[in-house]
Write a protein that binds this DNA or RNA. Structure first.
Length: 316
DNA sequence: AATCGAAGCAACCGCCGTCTC
DNA sequence: CGAGACGGCGGTTGCTTCGAT
């Protein structure tokens, strides 16, 4: 429902009272000086007390993304790139979680780097040859290990199925719409815009689960994913059901999830256990993975990330 | 030298969860 | 318990820079 005019007017007045756009050196200096002298606090107070015509949110962003003294400047190192690619393949667009594993880097920086550079590079790698697993960048092979082994027609059929689901009467029940909108968190899903990303959710011929552990794979109904027509996709979904200890019934009709918390909860209640060492240390075998995931621990992103860190010791 | 498109980046927007009153 | 303020997050936008023509 629309807000009443009076409320909107007040909100607009609030908004208009603040400066927007690029920060001037003077503003930077004011904020920097205030933060160094007083430390972090309530951002709207900081904005006011520092004498800035900015909203607290804007100050927070400027500090976190640009002024913070511990920020690392310059290009991403190959190790950082590797870690970003790896973490993204595991947890998707959780930029802040990824950033927390890269000291001196911000979520915004990583997000920009992914969207502008890595995503394109990965896309190019896939389109170069459907059967050629040799990527130009060996660091990316880790990520492509499974994905590349998928046959192109699998990917194509998946993509077409997704497109057709937009007109399907059942599409409204799906956690993901065909337009790429993700109902877990109400955000759009850039995953869906190319074949590579479609591949990543369908698993691969090694039987090694990759993306089903991402939000996207988890959220889809079994029947919907079977429509992709790939035996490999089917196999990976069966495996997914097994490793996550999801009953058949629930796998076919998972609870609709409106936000990320619901998703996390869903994962938690299915008593999965993610042994990252086994899964990602040597990119785990099917058997190992199943065994390790059946231990029954709760899904805990923090410890999950801790484990990942052990695979990338140069970041600790 | 001028133009144009791509790439990179900073910042905004809107949504959601949490906290406080 | 509900409303409002605030902080955090991810997606998107729009400006700037750079390189090709």
């Amino acid at each position: 429902m629309r807000k009443p005019e009076a409320v909107l007017g007040k909100e607009n007045a609030e908004k208009n009272k603040y400066r927007k756009g690029l920060w001037s050196p003077e503003e930077d200096e004011k904020l920097m000086r205030y933060m160094l002298n007083n430390g972090q606090g309530c951002w709207s107070d900081i904005a006011r007390n520092a004498g800035l015509q900015r909203c607290g949110k804007s100050c927070r962003l400027r500090w976190i993304n640009y002024l913070r003294p511990d920020l690392k400047r310059g290009a991403f190192s190959p190790q950082e790139e590797e870690l970003i690619v790896h973490l993204h393949s595991l947890i998707g667009n959780r930029w802040s979680q990824i950033a927390s594993r890269l000291p001196g880097r911000t979520d915004n920086e990583i997000k920009n780097f992914w969207n502008s550079t890595l995503k394109k590079r990965l896309k190019n790698n896939l389109s170069s040859s459907p059967y050629n697993h040799e990527s130009s960048d060996p660091r990316l092979d880790m990520m492509f290990g499974g994905i590349m082994s998928m046959q192109e027609h699998d990917i194509m059929s998946m993509n077409m199925s997704m497109d057709s689901s937009s007109t399907s009467s059942s599409s409204s029940q799906l956690p993901f719409s065909a337009t790429g909108h993700n109902s877990f968190d109400g955000s759009s899903m850039p995953f869906l815009d190319n074949h590579f990303e479609m591949a990543s959710m369908a698993g691969n011929t090694n039987g090694f689960l990759q993306a089903p552990l991402t939000e996207m794979g988890m959220g889809m109904r079994m029947e919907e994913r079977f429509r992709y027509g790939s035996l490999e996709a089917q196999r990976s979904m069966e495996l997914e059901r097994e490793v996550l200890c999801v009953p058949h019934e629930e796998m076919n009709h998972p609870p609709l999830m409106n936000n990320r918390s619901s998703f996390d909860q869903y994962l938690g209640t299915n008593e999965q256990n993610l042994n990252v060492e086994e899964m990602f240390g040597d990119m785990g075998s099917h058997g190992q993975l199943q065994e390790s995931l059946k231990m029954g621990n709760e899904w805990d992103l923090e410890s999950f990330m801790q484990d990942i860190s052990s695979s990338f010791p140069h970041f600790l």
